[in-house]
């Protein structure tokens, strides 16, 4: 299948999700369950995307594991996104030079 079709579908779906509420919805969602579900969805999605994929993200399990450990620690201590992301990568590079 053409990559262009995939990209058009990705972009179209993503745009429609953003556009519909901004242009048409004015009322608040009333259902507590639905609101709670939508509140938790981003965390659930990011977690399911990250694990276990992060351990294969550099093509080497050891450098990935060191990068993951660094990311978890820095994130735990509240470092900014950009610092956590780059430090994880740097840790993987450094580890890669030793193995």
């Amino acid at each position: 299948m053409s990559i262009g079709i995939y990209i058009a579908v990705m972009a179209g779906v993503t745009y429609i999700i953003r556009m519909i509420p901004l242009t048409f919805f004015t009322k608040k969602i009333k259902s507590e369950f639905v609101r709670s579900f939508l509140h938790y969805i981003p965390y659930a999605v990011l977690s399911a995307m990250t694990l276990p994929a992060i351990f294969y993200s550099t093509g080497n399990t050891i450098t990935s594991a060191v990068g993951t450990l660094v990311a978890v620690l820095l994130a735990y201590f509240g470092c900014p996104l950009i610092v956590v992301a780059l430090a994880a990568s740097l840790a993987a590079v450094i580890t890669g030079n030793f193995i």
């Binding site: 965390y43 993200s57 994130a75 956590v84 992301a85 994880a88 590079v93």
Partner: peptide, 23 residues
């Protein structure tokens, strides 16, 4: 070694998004 290590950048950012609220 550097380009493959960058593969972890996005996942690092995801961890930075989910861990502080989980704490």
């Amino acid at each position: 070694s550097i380009s493959s290590a960058m593969g972890i950048v996005l996942y690092g950012m995801f961890l930075a998004i989910i861990i502080p609220p989980a704490k």
